[in-house]
Design a protein around this nucleic acid. Structure first.
Lengths: 63, 63
DNA sequence: AGCTTAAGTAAAGTAAGCTTTACTTAATGA
DNA sequence: TCATTAAGTAAAGCTTACTTTACTTAAGCT
């Protein structure tokens, strides 16, 4: 599953560590999700959507 | 995380087993999600949203 | 050159999602 | 009354999400 986290971070000038902190996960988790190593849980996807003021579908894209 | 699966099933007269089959998961998985025992994975949430023609946010509600 | 910061990655472990098998309960109907 | 069907539940096991620790690489800066 692809996602727009890297771009959304870049627009806000946030590092992976910054985003991790805001979402209460580890930096490695953000890295792994951005690199497509695994998908976030649904609760984490919701948290990200709320953080960016977007819907889940705006951020995460089914393959 | 709450969800509207039971109502959406009822509107279509589908059993838990029917929905499970359409989503390629076991009947027990549907039961557990409906009863709030755990949240679906993000890919499964996407599949359900597409099946019902709704967004993830329409079906699954953050607590 | 040396320091710092961001990103990438990996191994080992815990927790959560999901499967299979199987038993139980309640409702319906022949 | 007996059989069937839908829902609920539970245990054991596998897979995936996530953590912690730690090492590496590349870029920017002094």
């Amino acid at each position: 599953m692809k996602n727009r986290l890297k771009v959304l971070r870049a627009e806000r000038d946030w590092t992976q560590a910054d985003l991790a902190e805001k979402l209460d996960v580890s930096r490695q988790t953000i890295n792994a999700i951005e690199k497509g190593k695994f998908d976030p849980s649904l609760p984490l996807a919701f948290k990200a959507a709320r953080l960016f003021g977007l819907t889940i579908e705006d951020i995460f894209l089914e393959e």
